[in-house]
């Protein structure tokens, strides 16, 4: 028996919007720790890792570890039928081939049940070792989204270079080039607007903007984004979900032939 009741149903809607363009089908894993997912895109270039901790749910019952295969587009369609302020409950019986999404409006005078078929998915789970990254940048999530969107109108890839002074995003295309530098900030009154850089070593890596633009669909989930890079590792882009967990995206770099 599985029963997860989330007071902020809008949060689950945002989570699905943040994953559905990257991954079609994925297994959600439910354990006493929480509700999680790890899935790669079809070309094995990017990976999304989601954790919603059990403590963040108003009610969390998961009698045994279960893995439930779902089509993320279909799940997003069903969740779009929930109001942003609705309470959402996920329910599944042991051995059942479907999951029920129950939506309750805030005044609790409208209750809707949506039942979705589960799928069998052969998932390729990757072991991601904990790593110390050479450069970590924390910046406003909306600013990062804006930069990725703007640069993708000029070029297909972005060179991200981190130094002690700041982080530079550069691209080039048929019409010309673009460089955007975000300097490290020192304000203390508005931490959500700060650009914070923790650097062991300067790093410069190139990434496909198409994927970064897909990751920025998670922007509504967090005010800040953390970008971790090392010269010999995929980058990690993390959006922390307050009180619940995180959504992390891993992206393999492009390298010179």
């Amino acid at each position: 028996m599985l029963e997860l009741r989330l007071l902020q149903g809008g949060l689950l809607k945002k989570v699905l919007e943040a994953m559905k363009d990257l991954v079609n089908d994925a297994n959600f894993d439910c354990s006493p720790t929480g509700f999680s997912l790890q899935a790669m895109d079809s070309s094995h270039v990017a990976l999304v890792s989601l954790l919603l901790r059990s403590e963040g749910f108003e009610h969390y019952r998961c009698d045994r570890n279960v893995s439930m295969g779902m089509n993320l587009n279909n799940m997003a369609k069903m969740l779009r039928c929930a109001g942003n302020d609705d309470i959402v409950t996920l329910k599944a019986d042991d051995g059942s081939d479907c999951i029920t999404f129950m939506f309750e409006n805030p005044s609790q005078d409208k209750i809707a049940d949506f039942e979705m078929k589960l799928m069998d998915i052969d998932s390729e789970h990757l072991g991601i070792p904990d790593a110390e990254y050479q450069s970590i940048v924390r910046m406003p999530a909306a600013e990062f989204a804006r930069i990725c969107r703007d640069l993708s109108t000029i070029g297909d890839t972005v060179l991200i270079s981190v130094s002690k002074e700041g982080v530079q995003f550069s691209t080039r295309g048929d019409m010309g080039t673009a460089n955007i530098v975000c300097r490290r900030t020192t304000t203390v009154d508005k931490p959500e607007e700060d650009v914070i850089i923790e650097m062991e070593e300067p790093v410069s890596l190139t990434f496909a903007l198409r994927y970064l633009n897909s990751f920025t669909k998670a922007t509504p989930l967090a005010t800040q984004v953390t970008i971790s890079m090392s010269s010999d590792l995929p980058m990690v882009i993390e959006y922390r979900i307050e009180g619940m967990g995180y959504i992390r995206y891993y992206l393999a770099p492009k390298i010179d032939e």
Binding site: M40, S43, H44, V45, A46, L47, E124, H125, L126, G127, I128, P129, T157, T206, A208, L233, P234, Y250, A252, P253, K254, I255, D256, E257
Partner: peptide, 14 residues
């Protein structure tokens, strides 16, 4: 020319 690396060249399947 730049080549897109795969995640599988960094992380092991578990």
């Amino acid at each position: 020319m730049q080549r897109q690396k795969s995640l599988l060249s960094f992380f092991q399947k578990s």
